[in-house]
């Protein structure tokens, strides 16, 4: 088909304004061009056709089916949300509740180097303020030497307060169970050296 390219370009609107006018003029007088044009146009139209005798019940039920699908999706969403909530609650119960029960909701002061640095940088009123509120804390020391140093730095009243607030005896029994006898003796002697 010799006019094939021109016709497809015309149908695609790819011809310039002049070319388009020339093509349309030629279409009126050139029967071969007109036949080819009509042939291609009918092929294109055939593919665009939608009149295939459809089952109209499908279209009539479309809005009903769509609403059913929406309701189904809503239920699935609620189920997913409930599952996620259950999962999060389970994790919360698994990780946090045992911690709360062991520590009686108390905070931990970790006696590592940074904590000691912070404590040593505090002035006396700040230190005593911490000690006054210290019954809310339990001391979980990682390094006994650092704890000894800390206690050694305190004045008599502060140590007394510390002992009272922490019930140091019970506390030591619990916290020093893993240290050697020698270290424990040393710790006790250090505490004894402080005039209580």
């Amino acid at each position: 088909m010799k006019n094939y390219d021109r016709i497809t370009k015309y149908l695609s609107d790819l011809l310039s304004k002049d070319e388009k006018l020339q093509f349309e003029e030629e279409l009126k007088i050139n029967s071969e061009l007109r036949r080819d044009f009509e042939n291609i146009q009918s092929q294109v139209k055939l593919l665009a056709e939608t009149n295939f005798g459809t089952d109209e019940t499908y279209f009539n039920n479309l809005t009903v089916n769509f609403r059913k699908k929406m309701a189904k999706r809503k239920t699935a969403k609620q189920f997913r949300l409930a599952s996620a909530f259950t999962f999060v609650t389970a994790i919360f119960l698994f990780y946090f509740i045992p911690q709360f029960s062991n520590e009686s909701f108390s905070e931990k002061i970790l006696f590592d180097n940074s904590e000691i640095e912070i404590l040593s940088s505090l002035n006396e009123s700040e230190k005593s303020n911490i000690l006054e509120n210290s019954n809310n804390f339990s001391i979980n020391f990682k390094n006994e030497d650092l704890m000894n140093d800390y206690i050694g730095e305190l004045d008599e009243n502060s140590v007394l307060q510390l002992v009272n607030n922490y019930k140091l005896e019970d506390y030591f029994l619990k916290e020093t169970k893993d240290i050697s006898d020698k270290d424990f003796d040393e710790l006790v002697s250090q505490l004894n050296n402080i005039k209580l």
């Binding site: 094939y4 497809t8 370009k9 695609s12 790819l14 294109v44 593919l47």
Partner: peptide, 16 residues
Amino acid sequence: LKANYFHAIKKITEMI
């Protein structure tokens, strides 16, 4: 779009 349409028509008519 015009270029795509041009190629589409070409292919479809060739196939037919």
